[in-house]
Design a binder for these strands. Structure first.
Lengths: 251, 251
DNA sequence: AAGATTTGTGTTGTGTACAAAACATGGCTT
DNA sequence: AAGCCATGTTTTGTACACAACACAAATCTT
């Protein structure tokens, strides 16, 4: 399990911005976030506060804050007096998320082309390279993660934090959608090649890039939303212990 | 409904009913939210937990939850061990917010046109009517509020919750931007007429509506950020205010 | 007198305790 | 035996208390 997050993730930049907690909260948040987005915790899994509190070695207060934040991001669902569960996006939610991604990711293309520099494009190509490596090695989880990272990193070229943060949230929700309705073998972006859009961007072809992105996102959506499955109960304990162990060991 | 009290109008709708304990949180959130976006609380205002807790008649725990949520929406700024203040958007943040609005509001136009019905358009025209009334009556605050409502309601026609919620956040942040950098004589910022875009939408003119929206949002941005105060100037003013206050012997 | 250190005050961060609500279990009625 | 109500258990919601930190004033040092 290579866990070499390139710190493009939510955590790094948010120490300075509005939603800040102490370092410990951040670490817990990142762990739970990763556990959900990487599908170590299946949608529907109950997340009892004291269980989490004990697992992470803190009190319920801190856990509540983290759960609250994840609820704002629609990654967990909190119902009154009924606690938190890993969110299970509905089909409409899934459609909304992908439609929103089409609007946002196609909409930023002009700015992306305008602000693209060789250095930034190289950084993006590096993500694609690692994505290919993960695919070649059969690491589907990492490939999906890097695919999402690519989309977010591409949008960040436009240098618009509001857009980038929103898209990051959409991408993480996409992971949940894939976890909930995903076809077993559908590697999300396998049909298409992320390098293609980079070439279009490098050549300044705004309309070409926009069209590519539109087709790409429609492909992804098609490969996912078709199948509907029933959620299943699962071993919360083992996964949670693993998460907590990583939490202690890695920090 | 402009409340004109110098101190915060807190606890107005507090003791309504007692069924859901979370309803109280919602009420507190709504009050603070309204106070911020309607500019009853100026950007930079400190929001001490104890004060708010006492004012609303709850403990700090509930207040913290509300403040966390507002921080997530970028309406308040929480710094570690330093408490919460009403957010002061930077110039770049302001630009990002408006650029994001252009992308989103223009991007949803096709869906809006597709899903527009006479009933929904009538509801939108009703908002415009109330907006005109507020303007005619000189109620600038209400007019600004309804203008924002119009943009959000228009986007909601597309029936995409992710997009609509994101735009609602952008619009509320726009109010903060206006409060921070707004022109003193911003009564003149109503160059454009919201009914025009409704006509375009009713006639199914997607490109016309998109172009209108793009121009409209650029107009709004120009009327606001144009008065761009330098960050140094802002800091200087704050420092001077502080110095003057101490000179008068306050605090 | 100027700078640095210490002390004081207030605010926030975190843990814990208690109350209320939901959940699960078992006995009772029909 | 099946369904329903009552009771006990678990989990969440809220308040409270103490510790940690930041900011400011006052004292000490040179």
């Amino acid at each position: 399990m290579s866990r070499k997050r390139s710190s493009i993730d939510l955590g790094a930049m948010q120490s300075e911005e509005g939603v800040s907690g102490s370092g410990r909260d951040e670490a817990i948040y990142r762990n739970l976030y990763a556990a959900i987005v990487e599908n170590h915790l299946e949608p529907g899994t109950k997340l009892p506060e004291d269980t989490l509190a004990e697992a992470f070695g803190v009190s319920r207060t801190s856990i509540r804050k983290v759960l609250q934040r994840l609820a704002y991001e629609r990654l967990v669902d909190i119902r009154l007096n009924r606690g938190a569960t890993v969110a299970q996006p509905t089909v409409k939610e899934a459609r909304d998320v992908f439609a929103a991604r089409r609007i946002v990711e196609c909409g930023v293309i002009p700015q992306v082309v305008a602000k693209a520099t060789p250095a930034r494009l190289d950084a993006l190509r590096d993500i694609v390279r690692r994505e290919h490596e993960a695919e070649a090695r059969g690491d589907r989880r990492e490939a999906i993660f890097l695919s999402g990272e690519f989309h977010v990193a591409l949008a960040r070229v436009a240098d618009n934090e509001a857009i980038a943060d929103f898209l990051a949230g959409l991408v993480s929700r996409s992971s949940l959608v894939i976890a909930t309705y995903g076809a077993p073998m559908a590697g999300s972006c396998r049909h298409s090649e992320h390098n293609d859009v980079l070439d279009l961007i490098a050549s300044g072809d705004v309309e070409g890039a926009r069209g590519w992105m539109e087709r790409h996102l429609k492909d992804v959506e098609r490969s996912v939303v078709l199948v509907e499955e029933e959620p299943s109960a699962l071993d919360l304990r083992k996964v949670l212990d693993e998460v907590a162990r990583r939490h202690r060991g890695e920090r």
